[in-house]
Design a protein around this nucleic acid. Structure first.
Lengths: 207, 207
DNA sequence: CACTGTGAAGGTTTTCACAGCA
DNA sequence: TGCTGTGAAAACCTTCACAGTG
């Protein structure tokens, strides 16, 4: 029972490696060395090898790693061997933009539907999924076994909606609302806060 | 010359503390203890105290911290005592959504303009800033002393546009393009990759 | 010979624990 | 007494350096 904990940050890097590998795969490249892949991903070769080490031994000494094998492994690691269903809550400006953003679909998640307090009055042009009133959210989650949600509601509703999501069975929340959510330990929340990212940049700039 | 390096992550937390303090300030609360503020921000009290310690001594033992003093200090720390000018490059779906998103403005950044390869054919309804063709970008940056840019161009143009930005004098890039940018050491890049965040969540979810 | 796999070293960040002060 | 400020300890993560191997 090897319970060597995998660093949280390593998981992020696995996503990056996946991207790079996909590009290599498209070009028909079959083998890649740790130094080549690392430099494409913007990390040190040793780091890449360590990261791979958490999941097994994939390389051939003197040669490198087989691109396809790594890709398959990573897909499994990232829980994306099968399409993950996702919903979005809060179809305001930001929410709708995310729905329209092809990036989600492309990367193998299935955005099933969006929910909004005010579903009827929403401009759904070029939004590729249905937008339902929030009342229908809980039954929908349960029926479709949804485990992940993207939260784009205004700050004042963030916690309340998060509670509802968690009760309905959601285990992962990508939180675009500028609130700190209090959730049980078994629920994972990732915050994406645009203003905060700017503030942070601003700190590291001279003058 | 106290060269105690401030952890990068501490700066993120300072942004969070600022948010919480602003709310306290609006409620007319004048003093807050480390444990109260920490729990609002979702961190441990000791962590908060350490973070504050990087910037000085603000508290009164037995009492807590003065809300307004902390707020002013943080504003200075985050380089937001004055309004920071920002531009956005790439006014596609995501770019336009970010432009429309009031969050940026509210938080004290000044989004001056957007630039796009194809500025003429862009739907600028409800976009509150002008969208110019990319040719005008470099002179604009220099004239307005722009130091920060939000990058929303497709992956294949990311590096090229970043190079142009850096040459023109930009020192901080908030990168929404799914590319790893290679930039000089004095330039700070923060990546926000929506698909990656979802993948990451997906890993931490059971089953 | 070129590259992987990995223990050990080094660095950074978080947490503890308690002295010190209003 | 209640809370801050902070060294020291612990946890965590990265990098080094080299043995091992196709």
């Amino acid at each position: 029972m090897d319970k060597v904990e995998i660093p949280r940050k390593a998981i992020y890097r696995i996503s990056i490696y996946s991207r790079c590998l996909r590009r290599l795969s498209e070009k028909g490249i079959e083998t890649v060395s740790s130094s080549a892949l690392a430099s494409a991903a913007g990390v040190k070769p040793a780091q890449l090898r360590k990261d791979l080490g958490y999941f097994g031994q994939f390389g051939t000494r003197g040669l490198g790693y087989p691109v396809e094998v790594l890709l398959t492994t990573f897909r499994e690691v990232l829980g994306r061997a099968t399409l993950q269903p996702v919903i979005l809550v809060g179809a305001g400006n930001l929410g709708r933009a995310l729905l329209r953003y092809e990036g989600f679909m492309k990367e193998g998640f299935e955005m099933l539907a969006a929910f909004d307090k005010n579903a009827k009055n929403i401009d759904t042009s070029r939004v590729p999924v249905p937008v339902y009133p929030d009342k229908e959210m809980v039954p929908f989650i349960q029926k479709n076994n949804v485990r992940m949600a993207v939260l784009c509601v205004p700050a004042e509703y963030g916690q309340q909606v998060a509670n509802t999501l968690v009760e309905a069975g959601v285990q992962g929340i990508l939180n675009f609302s500028p609130t700190i959510l209090q959730t049980p330990d078994n629920v994972v929340v990732t915050r994406v806060d645009l203003a905060m990212e700017l503030e942070n940049l601003s700190f590291f700039i001279d003058q």
